[in-house]
Amino acid sequence: MLGRTASSLYWMSRYVERAENMARLLEVGYRISLMPGAIEGHRDEWRSTLTSAACEQSYTEKHGDIDGAKVIHFLLFDESNSSSVKSCLKTARNNGRAVRTALTRDVWESLNSTWNELAQIAPENITSDRLPEFLEWVKQRAMGFRGALLGTMLRTDNYYFSQLGNFIERADNTARILDVKYFILLPRPSDVGSDLDTQQWAQVLRSVSAHRAYRWFYKDSHYKPWLVSEFLILKEEMPRSLLFTYNWVNLALDGLGELYGSRYACHEIAMETHDRLKNGNMEQIFQNGLHEFLQDFMAANNSLSQSIATTYNFP
């Protein structure tokens, strides 16, 4: 397989995943913006959404003050923002188009019709009341893409590179949301355990579609920061947890290792990160600092991405 094909498959999946995550983040921002402003700290929700999406700086450079409608437009439709939903879907589709031959018809048509439908949507029609419907559409399309991929692609290198992009992006996303919410939204020790606290953690879970799963899993309707963090970092039952994503990253890398008959540095980096999660416990993580832990994780995740690119000759 061409190095460029591998690279395109990887980025195609990464960008679809990123579009879906962006939709989830906006869902949360939108929900909070609808809440009565009584709970202090919520007025900053759009800023926090931008930070979680790693778009705060580029937004401020372009628009200055935070304004709900502008934030929504920036994160959904602004093509100068490479992480907007529109940019993500465009990049994903361009990557897919470049390697059309490596995709099944179902995967390609899923990507292509998503893009065609999006091109028909006028941003000015996505007013606040129609936002939830649109975000739902984005999520559905992303899930449809993944379904086509899982259901029709041969389990060869095409599939493995797509999976790597998907789960490395998801890992980065979960880690970033947890880090931002924890670090920025809870700066004051006095807030811990307050109503505000509970609300914030509920939103963290919501942004990874895990608020109900949490209750089922812990048989507890009260969100505890400790458990929420554990759920999103260490629980492999949870499909957006860091450990879960690394299980899949390793499966894909093992697949490549077996197919090509060689293992490289990227296999070791991934295994190390996986083992740290597998053997980790929350007590220790909190003791050493959750923020530091997450920063380390994101750095390792990023170096894995780079190592994969070098190893498999991405252009």
Partner: peptide
């Protein structure tokens, strides 16, 4: 892309 796919051969750009 179509012809490469139908023939079962790689589709390359110059860089490849």
């Amino acid at each position: 892309a179509f012809l490469a796919d139908e023939m079962g051969v790689e589709l390359c750009e110059g860089d490849d």
